[in-house]
């Protein structure tokens, strides 16, 4: 038994590794291609800036984003406050800068929820097939039969407003497309020689899925997750705007717009800048995603 196991590992691992390194090489050439197109290069640059801003927020932000100074409220953009101040005298630029952390948190956590769930559901459904597959795919169908904002709206309504719940709700709505993709990929690998070989050598299903199938699905799943980022950002902002997402005083951009809206007629900067930030970041992810799609689907080039 032990020998068998060892043997099976020997048989599968080099194959998997070879495929993995191939995937890695593909990723590198993908990057090169993305930088070649002006639109996706723009996306990449903006996302890099976003990452740096979030990382260096305390250094970049000129003020503490939560310091209230009612005497300094609703100041228009000036040298001291590039983006002006809000109704409580907080510096809007600093709030937007710190807001990048919230956006990134949302994106990261959603990916961490969505990737594994989608991967597990998709690979197991694809691998086992049968009623389990049917059952799982029906569930994904149900989730897919809603526009993501409406479904996450419904989930947040059920869970209660707040950043955490908004993240969970978005996560709950974002996994089905990933599961679909992972299942499709699994179906193509399932019959591969090395999988059959390790199955014949007695490797458990769990082992095969985790060690052999999942790594193979990973690159395409990663790409798909990137593609959904723009939607995630817009949904989070929409929830914030409706008062169901991040709650004040968190400097979430959508929530900033929701509060700024009350002052919009005289104080345009309260909504203009956070909205611009959302637009920029979501545009960057969309452009990147578009580039990725093109790069991966040569037919459309």
């Amino acid at each position: 038994m032990t020998a068998n196991l060892l043997h099976s590992q020997d048989a599968t691992m080099p194959e998997t590794r070879r495929k993995q390194s191939l995937a890695l090489r593909q990723l590198v050439s993908l990057f090169r291609e993305l930088l070649g197109s002006p639109t996706s290069a723009f996306g990449l640059v903006v996302i890099t800036i976003l990452l740096l801003t979030a990382l260096l927020a305390p250094v970049i932000a000129p003020y503490d984003p939560n310091i209230i100074n009612l005497g300094n409220a609703l100041q228009p953009p000036s040298a001291a406050h590039w983006f002006g101040t809000d109704e409580l005298g907080r510096d809007i630029l600093s709030r937007i800068v710190y807001g990048t952390r919230i956006s990134l948190t949302i994106i990261t956590i959603v990916s961490v929820i969505v990737g594994p769930i989608g991967l597990i559901v998709g690979t197991t459904a694809g691998y086992f097939g049968g009623w389990y597959d049917t059952f799982m795919m029906r569930i994904t169908d149900i989730f897919l039969s809603f526009p993501s904002l409406i479904l996450s709206l419904a989930f947040v309504a059920a869970l209660g407003a707040g950043l955490e719940n908004a993240i969970i709700a978005i996560g709950l709505t974002a996994w089905p497309p990933i599961a679909r993709l992972a299942r499709a990929e699994t179906l193509t690998f399932r019959g591969a020689d090395y999988i059959s070989a390790s199955r014949m050598q007695g490797a458990s299903a769990l082992r095969i899925i985790v060690k052999s199938i999942m790594p193979m699905c990973l690159p395409s799943v990663l790409v798909r997750v990137t593609l959904s980022m723009a939607t995630v950002i817009l949904t989070a902002a929409g929830l914030g705007f409706l008062g169901l997402g991040a709650q004040p005083p968190l400097p979430e951009w959508g929530a900033m717009i929701a509060t700024g809206r009350r002052y919009m007629l005289d104080n345009w900067w309260l909504v203009a800048f956070p909205g611009g930030a959302i637009l920029l970041v979501s545009l960057a992810f969309n452009l990147l995603g578009d580039g990725l799609r093109d790069a991966l689907d040569p037919k459309q080039r």
Binding site: S37, P38, T39, A230, L234, A237, G238, F241, G254, I257, R261, M264, V271, A272, G275, I278, L279, S282, L283, F285, N286, L287, D290
Partner: peptide, 22 residues
């Protein structure tokens, strides 16, 4: 092609409530 892609993607990327307000 690039301009069209960029311009239409802006529409897809904007928070629609914000565009409405503006």
């Amino acid at each position: 092609d690039h301009v069209i892609r960029f311009a239409t993607l802006i529409g897809h990327s904007m928070p629609i409530f914000w565009t409405g307000m503006i």
